[in-house]
């Protein structure tokens, strides 16, 4: 087009403005990231271990009640040598993952319904929020009576724990979508299902992801509660059963080892699965202010 060349002064002016005003981002060197992000948690863990060792050394509790960090490590190491450690972890993680995925499949359409259909929201919105604050361990006795001591009980408890928080996450994600996006979407023709697919759901994604993360935490918690209470030879041994077995054997290093394993797996999955996805989504939208 002719006028594009006819007015080089405006094009140049605009290019200059763009260069001056576009936000710039600098990447921090790896060393700085390590120092700022990795060092503090490592130091905190080291401090806890030191305090623990001191408590053991000065016998704050008798040794059979408070074993040393080395004893607990020895317990984990023995399970590793016996080849049973990964089996315990896998039993729990596969249950947790399966229960979580089922919760996603149920919780997502449920959240969409509650968010978009006013009568549904009025009817079950408050119940859903209420369920979220209810400890799902309370369902375990009822579930055992209904389903018996088997996997159904465990999955029922996991679902009751995770579905509400996933659904609620989606609801609050949708509620927080700026109305401007919906208006802009409608003006370019994103109405009805197109609007849901191209505007509403992507806009609600950060809230939904937060709900998923919380849903996983609830799955894991509920699973452990169920595994501790519902122990039976028919059920495979997961970390919860490991903990309960160690307690009945008065094996305190085993109890602490199981607790630490439960903690580690829970944190590990959040750090390895949810954190990277969440950061990616937030960063691509420029919502991760100052972080890299």
């Amino acid at each position: 087009m002719a006028s594009t060349e006819a007015k080089p002064d405006l094009a140049g002016l605009e290019a200059g403005l763009d260069a001056l005003e576009a936000p710039t981002t600098a990447k921090a060197p790896v060393g700085q990231i390590l120092r700022e992000k990795a060092l503090p948690p490592i130091a905190a863990i080291a401090l806890v271990l030191v305090l623990w060792q001191l408590a053991y050394h000065f016998q704050l509790k008798p040794h059979y009640q408070l074993p040393s960090p080395a004893d607990v490590w020895g317990s984990v190491h023995t399970m590793w040598l016996q080849g049973t450690l990964l089996g315990y972890i896998w039993t729990s993680v596969s249950r947790g993952a399966l229960g979580f995925l089922a919760s996603v499949v149920i919780g997502t359409p449920l959240g969409l319904l509650v968010a978009r259909v006013a009568p549904v929201r009025a009817a079950i919105g408050p119940i859903l929020s209420g369920l979220q604050s209810m400890p799902s361990v309370a369902w375990v006795p009822a579930a055992i009576i209904w389903f018996g001591l088997n996997d159904s009980t465990i999955y029922a408890v996991v679902l009751l724990g995770a579905v509400p928080s996933i659904a609620n996450g989606l609801v609050s994600g949708i509620d927080q979508v700026p109305p401007l996006f919906l208006r802009a979407g409608r003006t370019i023709g994103a109405t009805g299902l197109h609007g849901v697919r191209h505007v509403l759901l992507p806009a609600a994604l950060p809230g939904y992801l937060a709900g998923l993360k919380q849903g996983w935490a609830f799955s894991w918690r509920s699973l452990m509660a169920a595994e501790i209470i519902a122990t039976s030879p028919d059920l495979g041994t997961g970390l919860g059963q490991l903990l309960e077995n160690a307690r009945t054997n008065a094996d305190m290093p085993g109890v602490l080892a199981a607790i630490l394993l439960i903690l580690t797996v829970g944190i590990g999955i959040e750090l390895l699965v949810f954190r990277p996805v969440e950061r990616r989504v937030l960063r691509s939208r420029g919502l991760l202010a100052g972080a890299r």
């Binding site: 605009e14 403005l17 001056l20 005003e21 576009a22 936000p23 939208r285 420029g286």
Partner: peptide, 8 residues
Amino acid sequence: RVHELSGG
């Protein structure tokens, strides 16, 4: 990305 652009 949108956040990489200036207001103009």
